[in-house]
């Protein structure tokens, strides 16, 4: 029963994200210049491990175009949405990029490719937490939920349930850190567990019995636990 429900939730999340299996085939177009996966190195293009959340043009040891470094300096980071824009038309994002690729117009293929690249970004892979792997802002959450003002004092009390596993000091071996998250990311992530769009049984259970107000309170607290 549980396993079946878990699989359904995973399938659903994968659909939103694109199909990583199919994306692996799409990646064949990129392979000439880019490596990804265990042991990947910089070649003509930079390796693509840990791409999500990376600032554009920031990989140590790779010579980027000026245009690319400038894009990074002015705040371009790789997330599902920015990658999608870039892959659609690379020059629209970094006009002087040396990546000689005309772009991938097919939206489904783009989503598949991004889903595939995402496999090499999150760790541990079953814990798709906010920043590195968030799916842009396309979370479909009721704006009323996002607008709730949480009570940090209540959040502080509720947080003690979290710190049994998530270290208050922010350590993240085996279990991700949840301190200093932007409030909105926190709310979005917890609702995704509550609605079983994210696939982790402990978190689905914990989030499943938090009310909207309680999630807001936790988000308010964890944004700045001091």
């Amino acid at each position: 029963m549980l396993a079946a429900a878990g699989c359904a939730a995973m399938a659903q999340a994968a659909e939103e994200l694109g199909d990583a299996e199919a994306g692996k085939k799409v990646f064949n177009e990129c392979k000439g210049c880019h490596q990804v996966g265990p042991g990947a190195e910089n070649r003509v293009g930079p390796h693509l491990n840990g791409l999500f959340g990376r600032v554009a043009g920031s990989l140590e040891g790779f010579r980027y175009s000026k245009s690319f470094r400038r894009a990074g300096n002015s705040g371009l980071e790789w997330h599902a949405d920015s990658l999608s824009d870039f892959l659609k038309n690379p020059r629209s994002v970094a006009s002087g990029t040396r990546m000689s690729y005309r772009g991938l117009k097919d939206e489904t293929k783009r989503a598949d490719l991004i889903a595939y690249l995402r496999l090499f970004s999150d760790s541990p892979s079953d814990i798709p937490e906010a920043d590195p792997t968030a799916i842009g802002t396309d979370h479909g959450l009721d704006p009323g939920i996002l607008a709730l003002q949480g009570d940090p004092e209540y959040g502080a009390y509720l947080s003690s349930e979290c710190t049994t596993c998530h270290q208050a000091e922010g350590g993240d071996e085996g279990i991700p850190s949840i301190v200093y998250w932007p409030e909105e990311d926190f709310v979005v992530a917890l609702h995704a567990y509550k609605n079983k769009q994210r696939n982790h049984p402990v978190m689905q259970m914990i989030a499943g019995r938090l009310s909207n107000e309680e999630i807001a309170a936790l988000a308010a607290y964890f944004e700045d636990p001091e």
């Binding site: 049994t164 993240d172 071996e173």
Partner: peptide
């Protein structure tokens, strides 16, 4: 409640173990 299932993949079992190591660090500092 929930419980792990028989027949789970080796990756999931490994992630579950790694999670327990994280939990140990969490609860002892708590």
């Amino acid at each position: 409640g929930f419980i792990s299932q028989t027949g789970e993949t080796a990756e999931l079992r490994k992630a579950t173990y790694e999670e327990s190591v994280g939990w140990y660090a969490g609860i002892t500092s708590d």
